[in-house]
Design a protein around this nucleic acid. Structure first.
Lengths: 172, 172
DNA sequence: ACCTGAACACCGTTCAAGT
DNA sequence: ACCTGAACACCGTTCAAGT
């Protein structure tokens, strides 16, 4: 069984998410994880230096799994779709990991690329687009941390989009 | 020494903050804390049911310690001051505790009272003021989680305030 | 009844001993 | 050289034994 199903970073990450979903953050221990994978307790250390490196991989995995919608609609509609996807991913993550995903959301290699692209297409210069994306990402993270309903998310998002549309309206 | 300086929730909370500041979140264990207070390891359990209750008290303490500025200036200026104070408090807290403070920021008994009051004085009805305050608090939490510079904070905040000033400008 | 600390059931990680 | 698991230095918390 273990021979037919050798360990790999991917299998470890998958098992970690399984544990997080079924039993939550406190269940994710190196020992419990090894048990779940049916390997000896130290085996995971061949693939990850320590627990922190594993957690970082989990967060990166979650960031890559953000499902961006089709690029239809005007800039506001596109940003709504992107941020809804970001919010969904943040919501699924245990609170302990959300802050770490937050940092990745503004990494130019991730969703930020799409976000700033949309903002630039609306007429913002690159620097303003970067700042605007950071603001939108920050707002979305904060909403998840506070944890209100959808009403709250939409209200603030529309006000922020209104503000970005100032003083002269951006192009559709 | 221990007799002249009996334990209390306040002393425990103070010692906990000392430990957080000097050695960080991972140093805050019930055993280490007792050692710092020079009491037997289980003494803290007379004042807090478990570690989670202590942590909740820490977060509440931080929330109460937010130093609101004088209520000078128009509504935008006042909100800038309040949110700067909120941001400072969030920044001082270890990342593991920020999410929990986030929830308190929208509690009607805390800073939210002042925040919504300012927004209502600007002309928003109570429900809109509540939503607007949640949006401002969420944005501030998110900025701290992402951790950009001051430029980023101000840009997004001004855009959000612009958006709240829409479609008809609010009163000064 | 209360104070105390030994003990339980865990951690993450190191490292020596075996192959 | 590599695989393995015993062991180290911790946790939060329970609970039995002492006063």
């Amino acid at each position: 069984m273990a021979a037919r199903n050798p360990l790999s970073r991917e299998r470890i990450v998958d098992a970690s998410f399984g544990l997080l979903e079924s039993e939550g953050w406190e269940a994710l221990s190196m020992r419990r994880l090894a048990q779940e994978l049916d390997v000896w307790p130290m085996a995971v250390y061949r693939y990850f230096r320590d627990k922190d490196e594993l957690v970082e991989a989990l967060v990166e995995h979650a960031a890559l799994a953000i499902e961006l919608p089709d690029d239809r609609g005007d800039w506001r509609e596109r940003l709504r779709g992107i941020l809804a996807a970001v919010r969904l991913t943040l919501d699924r993550l245990p609170p302990e990991l959300r802050g770490r995903l937050g940092a990745l959301l503004v990494d130019p290699d991730g969703v930020a690329a799409t976000g700033t692209e949309v903002l630039e297409s609306a007429g913002l210069d690159p620097e303003a687009a970067r700042l605007a994306w950071s603001a939108l990402a920050a707002y979305t993270i904060g909403v998840v941390e506070i944890g209100p309903g959808d009403d709250g998310f939409e209200y603030g998002l529309e006000r922020l989009l209104d503000g970005l549309d100032q003083p002269q309206p951006l192009s559709a």
